[in-house]
Amino acid sequence: MKHPFSNPVAAAALAGLAIAALSLLIPTGCSRTEGATRESDGTRRLVVYSPHPEDITRYIVREFRQRTGIEVTIIAAGTGELIERMKHAAVRTAGAGAGGRVLSGEADLIWGGGIESLETVTEYFEAVDSPTDAELNPVYLASHRLWRPFSVLPAVVIFNKSLIPEEEWPDSWEDLLSPRFRKRLIVADPEKSGSSYTILATMLYTMKKTAGNTFGGWPYVQRFVEQLGPDGIASSSSMVYRAVAAGDFYAGITFENYALSLEQTGSNVGYRYPAEGTSAVP
């Protein structure tokens, strides 16, 4: 099966869905279906889909449980995989057919995933008014109230400083086409990773050659694909920064929070905001 990174038709479709994400800062995060379930022993429990790595979810879930007494079960996978799982698990209004209102599913919430992914499946979410909305900047609140912001993260280029001479550290998208990085680049599969879905759209947008073609950067993406080796498309976004930190690849593309975490732990991984521009999508 071809990946969106190697298929111009699929890339164009993804880019079209990402227009809102690149032009507006709209929140993404969680959407409620039926709320916490009370089990036979009286325990209240939320089932949550999340593409976030465990080192992000672990501490937040623990504090949530301490504050509310509600247990949380995390079902972890890439954004694309979770969306497909949500579709298959959904129960719709009897007799309403494929277009019926979704009544319930396997999970109560989805925590994470870019808005360009969630906008394709809005019929699976329920609008919720939250008392905490007043504490949020209105620019991050979508009018349909189907989700709330968790984070707004720029896409960055990361690189292993131990493997690349300082004068060749990549400062731009164009730098990644250097022979230095041939078969030494890694990026997550956009069909499975919401962050990589955003990264693909960002490339198409920032590397366009004409102003009239909003997502006209396909020639660049084709050249970028040629730089990827046989293992250059990872099955998850977490594999990207881990592989670069381990020295398995010279460079990769991820989100700012992962780069900052590596920096704080004394890793040999550096990062740059591409000179041509990047995106900061909730």
Rank of each mutant, 00 (worst) to 15 (best):
K2V: 05
H3M: 02
N7G: 01
A10T: 05
A13L: 12
A18F: 04
I19D: 12
I19C: 02
A21T: 09
S23T: 15
L25F: 03
T28W: 05
G29I: 03
S31Q: 12
R38L: 08
R45A: 12
L46Q: 06
Y59F: 14
V61D: 11
E63A: 06
E63D: 13
G69K: 08
V72R: 00
A76T: 07
A77L: 01
A77P: 04
M86E: 14
H88D: 14
H88A: 15
A94L: 11
G100F: 07
V102G: 05
D108H: 01
L109Y: 13
G112R: 10
E116N: 15
E116P: 03
E116W: 05
L118A: 03
T120L: 12
E123A: 14
V128E: 15
S130I: 09
N137H: 13
P138D: 04
S143Q: 15
F150A: 07
S151R: 10
P154M: 04
S172E: 03
E174H: 05
P179F: 03
F181G: 08
V187P: 02
D189S: 13
D189R: 04
K192A: 09
S193C: 10
S196I: 01
L200E: 00
Y205G: 00
Y205M: 01
K208P: 00
A211Q: 09
G212C: 10
T214S: 13
T214P: 12
F215D: 06
G216D: 06
G217M: 05
P219Y: 08
F224N: 00
V225Y: 14
V225K: 03
E226R: 15
Q227S: 10
L228A: 03
G232A: 07
S237N: 10
V240D: 01
Y241R: 02
R242S: 06
D248V: 06
G252C: 04
T254C: 10
F255G: 07
E256S: 09
Y258D: 09
L262P: 07
G270T: 03
Y271S: 12
E276I: 15
P282W: 01
